[in-house]
Design a binder for these strands. Structure first.
Lengths: 387, 387
DNA sequence: TTGAAAGCGATACCAC
DNA sequence: GTGGTATCGCTTTCAA
């Protein structure tokens, strides 16, 4: 964020005022009016300035150093017990809270772990990921880190994204987006002090660690299940939504791979938007497609698909078997019950432990710490007799 | 985060090492071993220290001041065009990224907007909220702020939470949790420089602004719909999950309020966990409960409920009408189609605009900026004839 | 046992 | 047009 319209700096930021970008590339002067009188902090010590370590020291009648020792628990055998009490009381009384920025500036590390999720894909992540993030943040906390989710949009420029993250000098960046994590991005982050960059989901860029969720395996398991059940003409739903290609494409590939082992098997990609209309349109031409099985990308799309098929008079699973993925609660609630691919992910605690290790041992060579596996959860929607 | 086990400071943090807490309350010495040799930064200037404004200046053969001017677009009429080019090239070449902490320390404002969601309730938030967060962060970015989602758990101590947030010196805190936002918490935040505290959802604590989502209205609209349709014995599902009371309770209250206007109407709370077993158990005793309508908390619980009722042979809506809330896609996919309460929320852009205004005009008195409303989206699940 | 002081990186006055 | 330099709040060594 290198623009002249930082909040609290001038008095004229407006939304359309697209942030001027970065030092690097040649850049015209900050578009438009150079902003009115950039007043710094106004008077001297307004009614009540935020309490600082200095205020606490004054209030307690000791030096700043003493305050620091006491408040950080390093006072053992250094500071008088009575003095400690005084300091703590003063801090309490003033409502003192240490200034994280000042601390990290001095100490050289921010203790921040950035969970970077590109804004445009964020809504696409389901409850599974939301749960992971929550658990991850809690786990990080146990290790002393502060995990924050950063979901800004960068218009797709990987280096811009990396720069935005790097400004915060995070100890680690864990990101879900493939595109934002190019080699140069990783390079930039590392150069600016980030000890580890971890790709969560997609395969990592050079220099980054990876916790890979093998989307191809998901597709392969789903298709394999259908194929094993005797289905041969298989449709694979590919979400039309932007930001889901990164999942949809490899799942399709996986299905194709699986089909290669079955002579006569055919895979047909089925573009589908997450709307009733789109599903109805697809279902209307179903008979022409002549498919006896469909892997519907995930449980939500599967529900959409199944509903449309049933409304169109297609029997599930008799005529066409349906398989979803993610094994959400709805899979078990649907009728017929939805067969689904369950994806085993590394737990938040494991990822937090990894992050901690990488921070403490930054020399650890980039590696893929895979630990995801996919199982089929067979239910009614794929169980019926074949066509 | 005031403990001695900050990452990168010592060499012995382990997960069970529950972060020692804060300056305030009397506190024993940091539990256990005082950590091994707390080595600061090791050698002098390791192979490549992160580039700073100074390195750029050196590299370009100018002073740090000049670098600052150029990189912040304040060089107009101050710095030679050729010099500017030199500076920008040097920055590019070194991969320089400004240090946000240093900048906020100096400028007095971090440009950070904290979206604080207590970790234990986070998984409870659905796709609606996820979408809001993503949009909000993008909108904030347009104004020059950095929106981050902070989902740490604090064991329920409001002041601890506030302290953790305050350390980051955010310009604004937007929080969804009622419990974490007590009067003293707001006080603490404001004293430490946060210009506005906004409660998103629950009614605000004293001193905080509020964007209220009137959960009672949701309950009232749902129950009102059922009552108007002639139903009189109405069950209201109250989620058993922790972290959902804040929604469940007011929705129940709203339903009760609505029922008060209909003589002979009865409201019966129905505790329900988000599992098939729980729903089946409830459905098994359905006839004894003798209910002709149920407001199932939200669409997901409604799906659970409806499935269990149908499996138990209860006709929906003939025998019992069902109403959900949130109007998700699944509402339209269910059969019978699910009647749902649609909640109109302020858009991310509107909230971002509000935040910006509050930061620039911190004197704005705390107020409730309500703009949520609930409408019924009537569908089949509540449309049938009454018992 | 406590205090003085040197920075961490960036910014913006005020002289040159 | 440029370059010193004081300063933001905090940590930590070294001296008293």
């Amino acid at each position: 964020m290198n623009d002249s319209s930082r909040p609290g700096q001038d008095g004229s930021a407006t939304p359309p005022d697209r942030a001027a970008t970065s030092p690097g590339p040649a850049q015209a002067t900050p578009s438009g009016i150079p902003a009115a009188a950039p007043r710094g902090r106004a008077g001297t010590t307004p009614p009540d300035a935020p309490p600082t370590s200095t205020s606490v020291a004054r209030h307690a009648g000791v030096s700043r150093a003493t305050v620091s020792y006491v408040l950080n628990g390093l006072a053992a055998g250094r500071v008088n017990e009575a003095t400690q009490k005084k300091v703590r009381e003063a801090a309490e009384e003033l409502g003192y809270v240490p200034h994280a920025a000042a601390r990290s500036l001095r100490s050289g590390s921010s203790g921040l772990v950035l969970i970077a999720v590109p804004a445009d894909t964020a809504p696409a992540f389901g409850p599974l990921f939301a749960g992971f993030v929550a658990g991850f943040q809690s786990a990080l906390q146990e290790y002393g880190y502060t995990g924050v989710l950063h979901g800004a949009s960068t218009g797709g420029a990987p280096l811009e994204a990396a720069r935005a993250w790097a400004e915060l000098r995070p100890a680690t960046v864990l990101t879900t987006h493939a595109g934002s994590l190019t080699g140069p991005s990783v390079e930039l982050l590392k150069r600016s002090g980030t000890s580890a960059v971890v790709s969560y989901g997609p395969p990592p860029a050079p220099g980054a660690h990876g916790i890979i969720v093998d989307q191809e395996e998901v597709g392969a398991v789903a298709a394999g299940h259908l194929l094993t059940a005797g289905r041969r003409r298989i449709g694979v739903v590919v979400p039309a939504e932007h930001g889901l290609e990164m999942f949809g494409a490899p799942r399709l590939t996986g299905a194709r791979t699986a089909a290669a082992a079955f002579p006569g098997a055919r895979i047909l990609p089925l573009p589908l938007a997450r709307t009733e209309e789109s599903a109805d349109r697809l279902a209307a031409t179903w008979r022409e497609l002549d498919l006896d099985g469909v892997f519907a990308y995930n449980d939500e799309y599967a529900m959409l698909m199944m509903r449309a098929l049933q409304d169109a008079g297609v029997d599930v699973p008799g005529e066409t078997a349906v398989v979803g993925a993610d094994d959400l609660l709805i899979a078990r609630l649907l009728r017929p019950r939805l067969t689904s691919v369950r994806i085993e992910l590394p737990t938040p605690g494991e990822v937090a432990a990894l992050v901690d290790r990488l921070v403490r041992e930054p020399w650890t060579p980039p590696a893929v710490h895979r630990r995801s596996s996919a199982h089929i959860e067979a239910r009614e929607s794929s169980g019926g007799a074949r066509h």
